[in-house]
C-alpha cells in the first residue's frame, strides 16, 4: 500500500514547535488521520491551530520578568557579535589583542564572583527538589552577559584607537540580522543538545 505523504513544510513546522516527547503521539495521530483521506488544507488547518495555540499558551506562561530577561540576553548577544565584528573588520590588530585579553579577564572574574555569590545557594536549594537538572557551571545564560561585559573592553579600546562611535554603529546595524540568526541557532542548539548532569550517588557505587 502506498502511503500518502503529508505536506512537508507543515510537518516540519509541527515538529519545530511541538518537539516534546508527548507531542509524538499528537503528530502520529495527525498523520494517521490525514492518511485516512483528509486533504492538504485540512492538514494545514490542524497544524496551524496546534502551532498557534502552543505559541499562545507559551506566551501566557512567560512572565514579564522572564520576557525582559530574554530580551536582555538578545540585546547582549547583539552587542557581543557587533563588537567582535568591529574588531575583526578593523585594521587595528591591537584592538583584537586588547579586546580579547580584557574580555577574557573580565569574563573570568565575573564568572568566579558570580559563582561565589548567590549561585551555590540557588544550586543547593534546587538540588533538594530536582537533583538532576541543575548544575552551577557555565550555562547559556552566562555566555551573553559575561561576553557582553567582557567585550565592553573592545568598545573602550575602539574609542582609544580612534575608530569612533559612527563606525561601530554602522557595523552594529549591518551585523544585527546575523546576530538574530546566530541567536536562533544558539537557542535551537541549546534546546536539542542540553546536557543533564546526574547527581553522584556514592551509596550506589
Amino acid at each position: 500500500m502506498r502511503i500518502q505523504s503529508a505536506p512537508a513544510i507543515a510537518t516540519w513546522l509541527l515538529e519545530l514547535f511541538c518537539s516534546g516527547a508527548e507531542d509524538e503521539f499528537l503528530i502520529g495521530d495527525l498523520l494517521e488521520k490525514y492518511r485516512q483521506g483528509h486533504g492538504r488544507f485540512w492538514y494545514w488547518r490542524q497544524v496551524t491551530a496546534i502551532v498557534f495555540w502552543r505559541l499562545y499558551r507559551n506566551a501566557r506562561r512567560l512572565s514579564l520578568s522572564a520576557a525582559a530577561t530574554q530580551i536582555r540576553h538578545v540585546f547582549s548577544l547583539l552587542l557581543v557579535i557587533a563588537a567582535v565584528s568591529a574588531v575583526l573588520l578593523s585594521d587595528i590588530w591591537m584592538i583584537l589583542v586588547f579586546g580579547i585579553f580584557g574580555g577574557v579577564i573580565a569574563g573570568v572574574l565575573i564568572f568566579l564572583l558570580g559563582n561565589r555569590g548567590n549561585e551555590p545557594r540557588k544550586y543547593r536549594a534546587q538540588t533538594a527538589v530536582d537533583p538532576v537538572s541543575y548544575h552551577p557551571g557555565i550555562s547559556i545564560h552566562h555566555i551573553p552577559v559575561e561576553g557582553a561585559v567582557g567585550l565592553l573592553f573592545v568598545f573602550g579600546t575602539v574609542f582609544i584607537f580612534g575608530v569612533g562611535v559612527p563606525a561601530i554603529r554602522e557595523i552594529f546595524f549591518l551585523i544585527a540580522p546575523l546576530a538574530v540568526l546566530a541567536l536562533g541557532i544558539l537557542v535551537y542548539w541549546h534546546k536539542h543538545h542540553s546536557v543533564k548532569i546526574e547527581a553522584l550517588d556514592l551509596h550506589k557505587l
Binding site: 499528537l26 495521530d29 488521520k33 490542524q46 491551530a49 496546534i50 495555540w53 502552543r54
Partner: peptide
C-alpha cells in the same frame, strides 16, 4: 487520539481539532 476524534465527529456531526482533543 484518532478514534476519539472520529467518534466525536460522527456523533456530534462537527469537525474537531486534534490539538483541542489533546
Amino acid at each position: 487520539g484518532v478514534s476519539i476524534s472520529n467518534e466525536i465527529e460522527e456523533t456530534t456531526g462537527s469537525e474537531v481539532l486534534l490539538g483541542s482533543v489533546y
